[in-house]
């Protein structure tokens, strides 16, 4: 399914993380956390949602307590906005009464949006008085012994560390992290071309060599994240990784040709059966849509469903 297929039904773009946030994310302060410079999340209405690429801002959002004056303002704004929404909702209904049917259907979006915002405002109001968990800001500032570099691409390990902290402190149950793309020059020895240029390697060995350096770095950061997730313990004293499903991959199997087949996907944690390489043949008869994996993930996380988006089945027989 391509983006343009969903033009008439944008709801089809609802991404896995946002769906999960609705299902398992309502008990935490943040139903989901979207990190990284590249957004990869779409709401139920089919809107692409922004993500936060600044570790300092993410830290502030998760762990810095707003002072009483700010909280007072927040309470006041939430209250005021709630009353505004009541008035505009009623006015919209009045307006809609005189409209044609297609227009009424369109206006329904507005009415639904108002109700949804009211619900979220009320939810937010409840959390204002709950103190945020504490965390040491050395994760973004470093100290005399440890340097923390927030420049690209060295902010990658910092983001991963923030993710571990977020999960440990139960600030959220759903996190997405989109690595930055673009055509910036990786500041590593031996890299001479921008990242995007390297991904259009056209099979040239020189470009593949440089691309490998970058991808090695990112994979090393992922490995380091896994180590941290194994060291960190959840509330029951078990490694955090055991109760966390980690999905790592790309939407392209071959960036040089922009092919979205044969995707490289890595699944870890979450109590799945891991340690194996599963090969799937091309799309068509034996191919598997990625959503089949998503169905298995949803079921593992306790969501009662046997389909998601373009799924045709699930992969339980391979990983549970």
């Amino acid at each position: 399914m391509e983006l343009k297929d969903t033009k008439d039904q944008p709801q089809r773009l609802h991404s896995l993380d946002e769906f999960l946030a609705e299902q398992i994310g309502q008990q935490t302060r943040f139903p989901s956390l979207r990190l990284g410079a590249n957004g990869v999340s779409w709401s139920r209405a089919g809107i692409k949602l922004p993500s936060d690429g600044s570790p300092a801002q993410v830290f502030a959002k998760l762990f810095m307590e707003d002072n009483p004056k700010v909280k007072e303002n927040q309470r006041r704004f939430l209250d005021e906005d709630d009353s505004i929404l009541d008035v505009v909702h009623a006015d919209a209904k009045r307006l809609g009464a005189r409209m044609s049917k297609p227009d009424q259907i369109k206006l329904d979006e507005y009415l639904t949006a108002v109700r949804e915002v009211e619900r979220k405002l009320q939810r937010q109001a409840k959390w204002i008085d709950v103190p945020k968990p504490k965390a040491n800001d050395e994760v973004i500032r470093g100290n005399d012994e440890v340097v923390v570099d927030l420049n690209y691409p060295y902010n990658t390990p910092v983001m991963y560390d923030l993710m571990v902290l977020a999960l440990q402190t139960e600030s959220t149950n759903v996190i997405t992290f989109g690595h930055p793309g673009g055509n910036r020059l990786f500041p590593f020895e031996g890299i001479e071309l921008g990242y995007h240029s390297l991904t259009h390697h056209g099979k040239r060995p020189e470009l593949l060599r440089q691309l490998t350096i970058i991808e090695l770095y990112y994979t090393q950061q992922l490995a380091r994240f896994f180590d941290r997730m194994k060291e960190a313990k959840d509330a029951e004293g078990q490694p955090l990784l055991d109760s966390t499903v980690v999905l790592f991959g790309s939407g392209m199997g071959n960036a040089s040709s922009h092919s979205s087949r044969n995707l490289p996907i890595l699944l870890a944690g979450g109590g799945f059966k891991t340690g194996e390489h599963h090969r799937f043949e091309r799309a068509g008869r034996d191919g598997r849509p990625l959503c089949d994996l998503f169905v298995s993930i949803l079921q593992q996380l306790g969501v009662e469903t046997d389909r998601f988006s373009t799924s045709q089945g699930n992969l339980n027989h391979l990983i549970t």
Partner: peptide, 10 residues
């Protein structure tokens, strides 16, 4: 094509 979502309304 112009959708009004709760995200936009906020």
């Amino acid at each position: 094509g112009l959708v009004t979502s709760d995200h936009l309304l906020r």
